[in-house]
Simulated scan of single mutants.
Amino acid sequence: MQNSQMTDKIATGIGFIAALDQSGGSTPKALAGYGIKEDAYSNDDEMFGLIHEMRVRIMTSPSFNGERVLGAILFEKTMDGQAGGMDVPEYLWSKAVVPFLKVDKGLEDEVNGVQMMKPMPDLAALCARGVSKGVYGTKMRSVINLANKEGIAAIVNQQFDVAGDILSYGLMPMIEPEISIKSADRAQCDAILADELKKHLDTLPKGTQVMLKLSIPQNANIYADIVNHPAVLRLVALSGGFSTDEACTELAKNKGMIASFSRALLEKLQHGLSDDEFDEVLNNAIAQIYAASAT
């Protein structure tokens, strides 16, 4: 639940937010990258058990702490699990890492060049559970593939509508309208999205704040006005398929944006590493992403 310490940490801290929220559709790919093939599990429960073990290994690693990691985004099953003998959100905050929860249920088919979020009929119950476990905020993702003004406007409308509900539940919404790095007109998408976001931010009641999670723009600093908007608690960037090196290089060009990386954080982690080796690899990734976020 929102509290002043967590708000101050997110608003002013130097560091980044780790994205540990792979859902059912992206979990097999995440496990494969970690070195666990699909023949290592025979059903969803076993699959989610393995990804939870990976996430717990990351969270309990000595290098993963609030000195450089400001927050962590969790999948619902991860929130409900344990780490270090505590509920995961409680454990994270014991390390001064602010817990967030992924609340979206995946994407609709593409219409007007975008993929809207699927309905979330259980949002109120999920948010209430998150609040009871000490979660600070939420994250929800939709995807922009083409520079279609009607489609991008619809995505932003949906995101802000749901964000209003999330605020009413006592949580900080992190709005994520991802622009695909494979889009042939990324720069146009960036420009349209920036305009639509500003329209909505300008209409929020005074004192109301949201967070934004955006793709790293093709033209640096196009989101400069949004970074400094009074309705934005923090603007974070997703890696979106870039390698760690590429994502950090591009992020560092954008003043005021900090990372919220998933694949770029996990890129070199392997389950066969010893604990010391694992922590060394994780520490190197954290150091690189931290440096890119601190520019």
Rank of each mutant, 00 (worst) to 15 (best):
Met1Tyr: 06
Gln2Gly: 00
Thr7Val: 09
Lys9Cys: 02
Lys9Phe: 01
Gly15Phe: 07
Ala19Gln: 10
Ser26Trp: 05
Ile36Ser: 09
Lys37Phe: 06
Asp44Gln: 14
Asp45Ile: 10
Met47Lys: 15
Ile51Cys: 01
Glu53Ser: 12
Arg55Gly: 07
Ser61Phe: 02
Pro62Ala: 12
Pro62Thr: 08
Gly66Pro: 08
Val69Asp: 03
Thr78Cys: 04
Gly81Ala: 14
Gly85Asp: 08
Ser94Leu: 12
Gly106Pro: 09
Val111Asn: 08
Val114Pro: 01
Met117Arg: 09
Cys127Pro: 00
Tyr136Met: 13
Met140Pro: 14
Met140Val: 00
Ser142Val: 05
Asn148Leu: 04
Ile152His: 04
Val156Phe: 03
Asn157Trp: 01
Ala163Asn: 05
Pro173Gly: 12
Ile175Asp: 08
Pro177Glu: 05
Ile179Phe: 01
Ser183Met: 04
Ser183Thr: 10
Asp185Trp: 00
Arg186Ala: 12
Leu193Ala: 03
Lys198Asn: 11
Lys198Arg: 14
His200Trp: 03
Thr203Pro: 00
Thr203Glu: 09
Thr208Val: 13
Met211Glu: 00
Met211Gln: 06
Ile216Gly: 05
Pro217Ser: 10
Gln218Tyr: 03
Ala220Thr: 02
Asn221Cys: 05
Tyr223Thr: 01
Val227His: 08
Asn228Tyr: 00
Val232Phe: 03
Val232Ile: 09
Asp245Tyr: 08
Glu246Trp: 05
Cys248Leu: 09
Ala252Lys: 14
Asn254Phe: 11
Ser262Met: 05
Ala264Asn: 10
Leu266Val: 02
Leu266Glu: 15
Lys268Trp: 08
Gln270Lys: 15
Ser274Ala: 13
Glu277Cys: 09
Leu282Thr: 11
Asn284Trp: 00
Ala285Pro: 05
Gln288Thr: 15
Ile289Ala: 09
Ala294Lys: 15
